[in-house]
């Protein structure tokens, strides 16, 4: 079977890769493009560990075919920091101890950024529902939710202006 040629933008860079017709975007990111920040926790869209943003939409990259990324703009965790300047969410996750094992962290950061882009000043409940598609088995979510709310405050105060 011939491979599909895909041209897209990933984290601001033009990227070309070849993929199988049945290959997921997650597998293409990890195996063809070499971006392993998005993880496969389930392969069925239930854990959010593979979260990326494609053309402004938060989605599970394990549920998208790589070929569908043709012409699209994709953001992954590797693109969140601006050089050495961490995104306020990344900084707040570090300072707030919002990660333990860290396997779910890339997905949470992407999902949290999508949430704040849509709703810059979420309530605790809105954060909890906004992140309900991402599983974390270590933290009990407490410090993740606090860190997202702290990041929102920082961004809204202009002290963590970014992107």
């Amino acid at each position: 079977m011939s491979r599909v040629h895909v041209t897209c933008t990933i984290n601001g860079d033009p990227v070309e890769f070849l993929c199988d017709g049945g290959q997921t975007l997650l597998d293409a990111l990890r195996d063809e493009v070499g971006l392993t920040g998005a993880k496969e926790g389930c392969g069925t869209g239930d854990c959010g560990t593979c979260s990326v943003v494609m053309d402004g939409r938060l989605l599970c990259s394990c549920l998208v075919l790589a070929a569908e990324a043709e012409g699209s703009i994709v953001s992954t965790v590797e693109g969140m920091a601006d050089g050495d300047d961490l995104h306020p969410l990344q900084q707040c996750f570090l300072e707030g101890a919002a990660l333990q094992c860290g396997i779910c962290t890339p997905g949470f950061l992407i999902a949290a950024k999508a949430l704040l882009d849509r709703n810059p000043d979420p309530t605790e409940t809105e954060v909890r529902y906004g992140l309900a598609g991402n599983l974390c088995r270590c933290t009990g979510y407490d410090k993740i939710v606090r860190s997202v709310m702290d990041a929102a405050k920082k961004i809204n105060a202009g002290t963590g202006d970014h992107h």
Partner: peptide, 15 residues
């Protein structure tokens, strides 16, 4: 080990 984990660079086994 936090910085590697918030930037997606930490290497887990499948990576």
């Amino acid at each position: 080990d936090g910085l590697e984990k918030v930037t997606g660079r930490a290497r887990f086994a499948a990576d």
